[in-house]
Design a binder for these strands. Structure first.
Length: 894
DNA sequence: GGTCAGACTTGCTGGTACACAG
DNA sequence: CTGTGTACCAGCAAGTCTGACC
């Protein structure tokens, strides 16, 4: 079968994580297409390159140990970018290239078509059966005339790139798009010329032009990297602390790993090997490319077949070698899970993409449980009711205080918050209490007491503060660590959440409700069978339950008092090997998508016009997830904030509240078929109806899994974020000092944040800061003017005028004055750039993408290649979290 | 096929320690 | 030395996704 080939590639790749002797060619775009099509060779090759680079690497510092002497400058790069959230694709933005039709935005229509075409071409080249992964697309268009080879490139390109401006999000403050714009997709009508729009080749992202400014994206050249090795090898995880491990890992990096992953073995216990590869292996999918219409009613999934074969071998090999239980075991029911515990190394033949269900996560686990907040200490300050002081019991006072301290927050203006608070508090007060209504309550005395306490704390001497801190540390020390399979690992959240008022985001229906105090009898502890059960810290009380489940990673959990159906877990810290391993798997999965993306795009593009509605909805939804980095959008209960994701978009949406009630406003141009399809989905529905009424996340993800093993909606976010970073860094890094390079990085980071709609609220002092800067600039300009006058006078041999205070200024030579002027100009420019940057970033949160979406190996490798100390990019906790990525080869590409 | 429990990841915020400019 | 600004981190809310169960 034709299929095989592809699969093979895949597998080989993985396996190989280690070796790959192929030649790497990263650069040519031109070649790219071909390469892609044919082979995964690329991957292999890339790996190879890794090896090489390893050598180079030597020059680079070892990640962990670096010292950064350097100084970095904090200077911020100037950015010219326009406000971030400009509407991206609105027609106006489009302009640029196409003058011809105003309508056509830089983006896309054409693009779509193009890509489609390309793909189809490719497809045609190939034959009918193809694995998705392979390049063959199921779709075939005969009409296509030319194919761009570049297309390939596109696929690998980041979305963002494709969007030239994704300007997506309106931020809270900044959305630029007009309501009208945001309301619907603007179809592009443009006649698309031939496929040749240059853009076509460009990745989607390129197609949207980003307004943001960074200006950097050029659309094209992407190609080069296309062929990075997919899998990099599975390296060990680098766990942070073990030297041995480290060493080995380093070694491994330096040269291509061998299949056996020998290096991995050593870690095996702690780390699971990344299964990603494994996972993928599980199912190989093939697409049957019948081009005809008939396909239309065949679900894509069906069109795709899986070929499983080769994989398992590899997988098992690996597993054995590592002795790690692969995460891939799937579908093991609970009982069997438990059984599995006993046989650590047993493996199921079923590999699953999911990360590890049923899989053993640890063999021995020792920890000390959790620490509780101190009991409430009454302050005795009386609040007023109807102007009179009221006596409250400590319990009543505690809750009143929770409310009082929130006086200055926005919650106080939310009726729902007050209503919920009152419901819970009045229960505590009892029916006969003097306090009958919240309206007559005056919490000011308590609030003032609170402010005083805060002030006192602030006024403490540094010694006192230090002493307190040490005291706290001493109490908490024992809870901070767990021993997992013999290795000391940090625990993430060992402190039980204190009681308080629930602070739901957005218009959460439960905001203001009392989050009661959690007691030991609410808590279930999970610990190794042979480990001592943690002593309950509250005398006379006991844990709710003790479990010894090594198929999960939590150390303890309790039910959320606000929503008892939900759980609050205590996990290991992000720096732990367990977390690191799954992090790595996540990125490996995203990297794998790179190999499938082209065909996935071709498939959904084809389905835009499918007869079957469900299929069409899946296609459009996938498109939106891919292009706009939307989240999947699970159904939500009525008692949650009203937010949506892709599958739950409403007919009237395109300005909606996403996770955390963050607004998403984006106007994009979409391909005509998408526009039409959306129009159809909207027909006959009201604004509040689901746009994708045939869809939910399970269906969508089930479908995605048929396209690529383990593929789910969120993988697109990771993929698009990481590929964008990789692409931008590689395209835009130029010679320069460290500070300049850091600026490049920040720009790329910002681009990703915009794509993912990562926002932050504008700091309270933002406007003050801006006006201060403006003032300073004005002042400097005044100085400049004065200098100019002095200069003119000096040239004529006259002394300078007196200064503002009437004092005589020093007599300077014209040269000296000119020098001063130049310095002042530099200062002004820098300030203006700083202002611009500050303005641009005022609503953009860079941290989230760094923590969750950007493969750290991209960053580490880039730092190594460009001699940028990694500490300039990653802070201490990120360094710990990404320890597993530190020994990546400098040539690593996503 | 749908629902739900369960487990884990993602995301924003606020407090604060610390760096820096004046 | 001091007031500001910011980076960092903890906290916890809010997502995603899987598998069991009906």
């Amino acid at each position: 079968m034709a299929v095989e080939a592809p699969s093979k590639h895949v597998y080989d790749y993985d396996d190989e994580d280690d070796d790959g002797p192929v030649v790497f060619k990263r650069s040519n775009t031109s070649s790219s297409k071909q390469n892609q099509l044919n082979s995964e060779v690329k991957k292999a090759s890339s790996q190879r390159s890794d090896g090489q680079s390893g050598r180079q690497a030597s020059s680079v510092r070892a990640p962990n140990g670096q010292n950064s002497v350097a100084q970095a400058n904090k200077s911020i790069p100037p950015s010219k970018s326009p406000p971030i959230r400009s509407p991206i694709l609105s027609p106006k933005s489009s302009n640029s290239s196409a003058k011809a039709s105003p309508v056509r935005s830089p983006v896309v229509i054409s693009k779509a078509s193009t890509s489609l075409n390309d793909q189809s071409k490719q497809a045609s080249k190939q034959n009918k059966f193809t694995s998705v992964k392979e390049e063959k697309s199921p779709i075939k268009r005969t009409d296509e005339t030319n194919s761009d080879d570049d297309d390939d490139d596109d696929d690998s390109k980041p979305l963002s790139a494709r969007l030239k401006g994704i300007s997506s999000q309106g931020n809270k403050g900044v959305s630029t798009s007009t309501p009208a714009q945001s309301q619907r997709f603007v179809p592009k009508i443009e006649v698309k010329g031939s496929a040749e729009d240059p853009d076509d080749d460009a990745p989607l992202s390129a197609r949207f032009s980003m307004k943001s400014n960074t200006g950097t994206l050029s659309s094209k050249p992407y190609g080069s990297h296309e062929k990075k090795p997919l899998a990099s090898k599975i390296q060990q995880n680098g766990s942070i602390m073990k030297d041995k491990q480290q060493k080995s890992s380093m070694l491994s990096d330096k040269r291509p790993l061998d299949k056996g992953n020998s290096s991995d073995q050593s870690y095996a216990k702690k780390l699971k090997i990344s299964d990603t590869p494994t996972m993928m292996k599980t199912k190989q999918v093939t697409v049957k490319a019948e081009k005809d219409e008939e396909d239309d009613h065949i679900p894509i999934s069906q069109r795709i077949k899986k070929s499983v074969s080769s994989v398992s071998k590899t997988a098992s090999l690996k597993q054995k070698a590592t002795k790690v239980v692969s995460s891939s075991f799937k579908k093991i029911n609970k009982k069997s899970k438990k059984d599995m515990k006993k046989s650590k190394y047993s493996k199921s033949t079923k590999l699953s993409p999911s990360s590890g269900d049923g899989q053993k996560k640890w063999s021995t686990l020792v920890h000390n449980g959790v620490i509780f907040p101190p009991p409430y200490n009454p302050h005795g300050v009386k609040m007023l009711y109807d102007g009179r002081p009221v006596d409250l019991t400590p319990e009543q006072e505690e809750v009143a205080t929770m409310f009082a301290v929130m006086q200055e927050t926005d919650y106080m203006s939310k009726p729902q918050f007050k209503k919920n608070f009152w419901e819970d508090w009045s229960k505590l007060l009892g029916r006969n209490h003097v306090i009958k209504s919240l309206d007559k309550c005056d919490f000011t005395p308590i609030y003032e007491w609170h402010l005083q306490e805060k002030e006192k704390k602030k006024q403490m001497s540094s010694e006192e503060k230090k002493a307190l801190k040490e005291e706290k540390l001493k109490q908490e020390e024992k809870y901070m660590w767990a021993i997992v399979d013999g290795v000391k690992e940090k625990v993430g959240n060992f402190r039980v959440e204190p009681p308080g008022l629930f602070r739901g985001r957005g218009e959460h229906p439960k905001m203001g409700k009392l989050k009661r105090r959690i007691r030991p009898c609410d808590i279930t502890i999970n610990i190794g069978k042979d480990a001592p059960i943690p002593e309950c810290p509250i005398p006379g009380e006991r844990w709710k339950d003790i479990k010894h489940d090594n198929t999960v990673t939590w150390l303890a959990f309790w039910n959320d008092p606000i929503n008892p159906k939900e759980f609050k877990y205590v996990f290991l810290a992000a720096s732990s090997s367990l977390k690191g391993q799954s992090d790595k798997e996540k990125y490996e999965k995203a990297r794998l998508l790179k190999d499938y993306i082209k065909n996935i795009r071709a498939a959904y593009t084809k389905d835009f016009t499918a007869k079957d509605v469900t299929k069409r909805q899946i296609a459009v939804a996938t498109y939106l997830i891919d292009k706009l980095a939307l989240r999947a959008g699970n159904e939500k209960d009525d008692d949650e904030a009203d937010t949506v994701g892709c599958c739950t978009l409403k007919v009237g949406n395109f300005d909606f509240l996403g996770k955390d009630s963050i607004q998403y406003v984006n106007t994009v141009e979409v391909e005509l078929p998408v526009y039409k399809a959306i129009g159809q989905f909207q027909t006959g529905k009201s604004k509040s109806d689901d746009l994708f009424d045939e869809l939910d996340t399970s269906k969508l993800n089930a479908h995605l899994k048929e396209l690529m093993p383990g593929l789910t909606a969120k993988v697109f976010r990771t993929y698009n974020a990481s590929i964008t970073l990789d692409d931008m860094l590689n395209k835009e890094t130029k010679d320069g000092d460290v500070a300049e390079k850091v600026v490049i990085y920040q720009r790329a980071n910002k681009e990703v944040a915009i794509i993912c709609n990562h926002q932050r609220s504008i700091s309270k002092s933002h406007s003050a800061q801006m006006s201060r800067l403006t003032e300073k600039i004005t002042e400097l300009k005044g100085v400049l003017k004065e200098l100019k006058t002095d200069l003119d006078r000096a040239k004529k041999g006259k002394p300078p005028l007196k200064d503002a205070d009437g004092k005589q200024k020093r007599n300077l030579t014209p040269e000296a004055i000119e020098k001063k002027m130049a310095q002042t100009n530099v200062k002004i420019e820098k300030m203006e750039r700083d202002m611009q940057t500050k303005e641009d970033l005022k609503t953009v949160a860079l941290g989230t993408s760094k923590i969750n979406y950007l493969d750290p190996r991209i960053t580490v490798a880039w730092c190594k290649r460009h001699e940028v100390p990694i500490e300039k990019i990653f802070n201490k906790s990120l360094l710990a979290k990404f320890a597993w990525a530190m020994d990546v080869d400098p040539d690593f590409r996503f």
